[in-house]
Simulated scan of single mutants.
Amino acid sequence: MNLTRLMALGVLVRSGPSHGHHIRRIAELTDVGEWGGVSVGALYRELRAMEREGLVEAARTERVGNRPERTVYAITEEGQLELSALREQAIKPLFSSHDPLGVALLFAADGVDRADLRRTLRARRGMLAIWIAEVAAEREQLLRKGYISPLAASVMRRAIVHVEAEIRWHDEIDAELAGAGTEAEVAAGGAVADTPAGDQTPGGGNA
């Protein structure tokens, strides 16, 4: 899935013929490289590749002041077909492809002190909460000024809802880890449980 290509072709349809700087500027303003997997640094290379493949064409060149000439690209009919295919590919998947946190907890958390793990996860939760506050405030400001469409606002809201769910999961696992105690406590409890009844220490009832 080439999300960089999807984004660039989509901008050419929405904005009309555009140069690479315009497309890159939109990518930077929307921060799509962070949340959308778009390789902002590869946009110019992707435009040249799509031109070779006949998906976009050079409509004209522009020069502003003493700056180098800029090629203005327009989407072709083949590019429209490619955009439709990429859009469908992007919408169909139910889950994102990578989950580093899941891998860390499932395969690399054995033997980790529960208190340390809770601190690490709580720090992550705090960062998520800050992110929600910032994005929600930005969304409201953009809506109030009329800078984004209702669809764009809905996309931002979707991201917020996802992170809100992640925070609820953080609260659940924090409660579970708090109930489990530290690794030492769990190990000690297991050792007592595994001790034969006749070998228990005085006070256990079977000395």
Rank of each mutant, 00 (worst) to 15 (best):
Tyr147Gly: 10
Ala8Thr: 10
Glu51Tyr: 08
Gln89Pro: 05
Met7Ile: 01
Ala74Arg: 15
Leu151Val: 01
Leu94Met: 05
Ile91Thr: 05
Trp169Arg: 14
Met156Arg: 05
Gly181His: 03
Thr71Ile: 11
Gly37Val: 03
Glu82Gln: 04
Ala108Met: 12
Ala136Glu: 10
Arg63Asp: 11
Gly33Phe: 01
Met7Glu: 01
Arg70Leu: 15
Val72Leu: 11
Ser96Thr: 11
Glu78Gly: 15
Glu62Thr: 06
Ser39Asn: 14
Pro68Cys: 00
Arg25Asp: 00
Ala123Lys: 03
Ala178Tyr: 14
Arg52Ala: 08
Pro202Gln: 03
Gly54Val: 02
Trp131Thr: 13
Ala109Tyr: 05
Val163Ala: 08
Asn2Gln: 10
Arg48Pro: 07
Ala165Tyr: 15
Asp194His: 15
Ile160Trp: 01
Gly126Pro: 12
Gly102His: 13
Thr182Ala: 05
Arg52Gln: 12
Val135Ala: 03
Val32Cys: 00
Asp31Val: 08
Glu176Tyr: 07
Glu78Lys: 12
Leu81Cys: 11
Gly198Tyr: 13
Arg125Asp: 09
Gly189Gln: 13
His21Gly: 11
Arg70Tyr: 11
Arg24Phe: 00
Ala159Glu: 07
Ala27His: 00
Met127Gly: 15
Pro150Glu: 12
Gln200Asn: 12
Phe107Lys: 14
Trp35Asn: 01
Leu86Ile: 09
Val64Arg: 13
Ile132Asp: 08
Gly190Asn: 04
Ala153Trp: 09
Gly190Pro: 02
Asp116Ile: 01
Val135Pro: 01
Leu106His: 06
Val13Cys: 13
Arg144Ala: 08
Leu94Trp: 06
Val192Phe: 10
Leu55Lys: 14
Glu57Gln: 15
Met50Thr: 03
Ala193Val: 15
His98Ile: 05
Arg119Trp: 03
Val32Phe: 04
Met156Ala: 03
Glu57Trp: 07
Ile130Gly: 06
Met50Asn: 11
Ile148Pro: 00
Ala27Lys: 00
Arg67Leu: 14
Leu83Pro: 00
Ala49Met: 10
Glu138Arg: 07
Thr120Lys: 07
Gly204Cys: 09
Arg25Gly: 00
Ala175Arg: 15
